[in-house]
Design a protein around this nucleic acid. Sequence first.
DNA 1: GTAGGGTTAG
Length: 477
Amino acid sequence: MKAYSRVGKVDEVFRLFRRMKEDRCYPNVLCYNTLLNCLAAAKRFDALHGVLEEMYSSGVIPNVSTFNILVKAYSCYSHRFNLAFRVLDEMSVLGCNPDVTTYSTLITGLSRAGRVADIEAVIEMMRDRNCGLNVYTFVPILKAHCDRGDVRAVETLLELMRLNGYLPNSVVYNIWIDTLCKNEQFGEVESIFKESSSKGWKPSTISYNTYMNALFKVGKADEAFRILEIMMGNGLYPTVVTLNILLDCLCHASKFYEAKNFMDLIFHFGWEVSLVSSNILMNGLCKIGQGHSVMMILADLLKKGVVPNTRTFNIIVHGLCEAKRLTEAEYLVESKGFITDVVTYNTLLSGYCKAGNMSKVKNFYHRMTIMEKIDPDIFTYTILIALHCKEGKIKDAIDIFGEAHRKGFLPDLVAYSTLIDGCLKKGMLDMGLQLLDRMLKQGLAPNIDILETFVRACCKKDSSHVWISIVKILGKR
DNA sequence: GTAGGGTTAG
């Protein structure tokens, strides 16, 4: 059952479970947990509840793991946090007290939903009940801070970990490396690798993959290949993710012939050519308007019985938007032929924003949030900010920026640069400076685009005080 | 033998 569960074959797990009963070999709590866990991962919540009922009526007593699986189902797989909290209460009533795993699982779900304030509350609960924290508790919190771009909070947390005697491991450093890479702070990433042995951890394939990927993304292919050599020199082999990163690099360099050959080579050497690889290739082809080739790959996948995922469709929606075929993109989104998510809508909203179609943006924003009950994220807000800036409604743009912040979305580099750009174009230099200052206080490093925007604005106007402010701000760094 | 963390495509 576990083997089938690992590869996601839920029905096979179910079949074996049923056969056990037929053979009068009655499942114990471990068998139930295995089945429940794979149903949770497959998001088959109705079946999960059925099995749970069956478990109770068969007289099998659930243990902490059973409840932890339920917490995972509610917190990580469906974000129904009130139900997750209710499981914790039930546990206490039944005398099966939540352990550090229960709390860490709950925190993982909250972290993925960006609910930082609720995480604080869970930590309080742990303190009240004398439950110690471990690295599994710290990691999702760290991830949440990194995702929000709250560098100050990250630094505090790392310090807190050290104070509590937890030496950060490669997982912790990988999250940190990923964030630094996204901020293009490559010098700091180099130092982290250099100091790894003295700090008592070893970079993993994931550490190198993360760094390599970021270098490719900013066009530093030579650097990336140097990292690949270092990685292999340290006895670490490339994984399928490494190959996918290389595949993406070839696609971005428009080397599609090489990319196709590379995929065949991957297959030839017995590597699993995953849906991810196909999605990467389709994405590359979409970007150069090769809709035909994309459909060929899609047809090939379907023939092989591979089910495309939401990302596959999002890539196609994105391709259609880029080609300004917005009506077709809209049709695909409305077809209900696949599960839409926040990215699907962000893609379509961004397409209509670029086309300056305000009413369509409003329409689909309504459809997304009200009809489909999909929560907007910082990308959605940034699109709305960009649209209002474009229409010269800078005050509304600032309001949306504030609303996002109130809802707990810390603005990222793009959100800041979008609004700063809007302000400066309207001649609101001081507002721009305020935003820059706030951004730096959040620990975000300004990129060259933002600085260029300021330089441009300063050159247009006589604004020596702004020049001085910028030099001062940068000097502090 | 069951539960909790990190990388790739939108």
